[in-house]
Amino acid sequence: MTRFAPQVKAAWLLPNPSKAFSDITVGLLVGALLAISYLYWLAPLLETLQRTFGDFVPPGAVLPTVSSSIVLFFIANVLLAPLVEETLYRGIAIPLLTTHLGALWAVVLTCVFFGLLHWAGGLWYMLLAGVVAGGAFAGLFYWRGGVLAPFAAHFALNLIEFIYAWHAQNQA
């Protein structure tokens, strides 16, 4: 990892306080919109795709699985995933791939690998995570010029997803 230390340091070089506040605010709003879209439209679409075309994860199996170990879900998904994934995909991979392949291929490749990282949710979940979330986070990275906005968006998305899973677990 020391080979990428300069990229990590550059990725997390925070902007001035007013831009940082703006990046965090924009990111939180985008993440909340992604979460609402997922909970109300994309999750039902995911189940429809799983029922219609099949998947290696049964329809409706993701939420009960994650909410069964809610503390681990919080640590891994809310605390660690946004930090690690945004550093890796948006902070290191996009700048390096942009230099060698151009911005379009950098976004495409990071979305593909971001989607593949979400394999536990099934084929359709990988596609949705890669295209929708990965695309939104990449767009935020380019628009805002750093990882702070995509990190805030990823954090908000995963936090709202956690709250939903926790609430569903307590309702059962």
Rank of each mutant, 00 (worst) to 15 (best):
V71T: 07
L33K: 04
S22W: 13
V26K: 05
S67E: 12
L49P: 00
S22I: 01
T48P: 02
F53S: 12
A20M: 14
Y89Q: 04
V71K: 02
L88Y: 11
L14P: 10
F21P: 00
F4N: 07
T25Y: 01
P44M: 08
Q50K: 15
V78W: 08
R90F: 03
L39E: 09
P58Y: 05
E85D: 06
F21N: 05
G31K: 00
E85R: 06
I24T: 13
L33S: 09
F53W: 15
F56A: 02
L63S: 10
G91N: 06
L46I: 03
V57L: 06
S69Y: 11
A76S: 14
V62A: 08
A32Y: 03
L72H: 07
Y89C: 06
L63D: 08
P64H: 07
R90I: 04
V26H: 09
T87W: 06
N16F: 01
N16V: 04
P58A: 15
L14G: 08
F73Y: 13
E86D: 09
V62L: 15
Y89N: 05
G54Q: 06
L28H: 04
Y38C: 06
V78C: 12
P17G: 01
S22M: 07
F74Y: 14
E85C: 08
L83N: 01
E85N: 08
L49S: 00
W12G: 08
L34G: 01
V66W: 13
R90N: 03
L80P: 03
S67H: 11
I70K: 02
G54I: 07
F73N: 11
P6G: 08
A32G: 13
A32M: 12
L29V: 14
L80V: 13
T25A: 15
L83T: 11
P64A: 09
S67P: 00
K9A: 14
E47G: 09
P59F: 04
L42A: 13
V71M: 04
L88F: 13
A32C: 13
G60N: 10
S68K: 09
R90K: 04
L45D: 00
N16W: 09
P6K: 07
Y38N: 13
A20I: 03
T87S: 13
L83A: 12
L46K: 09
L13I: 00
V8C: 05
E47P: 01
E85A: 09
I36M: 13
T52D: 12
S69F: 14
L14Q: 08
L45Q: 03
G31Q: 05
G91P: 05
Y38Q: 11
A76Q: 07
A61Y: 06
P82W: 07
V66K: 10
R3G: 09
E47R: 11
F53I: 03
N77Q: 12
T52Y: 06
V71W: 07
Q50C: 10
T25W: 08
F73M: 13
F56S: 09
I36L: 15
G54L: 05
Q50M: 14
V66L: 15
P59V: 01
S37Y: 03
Y40F: 15
L88V: 14
S69D: 12
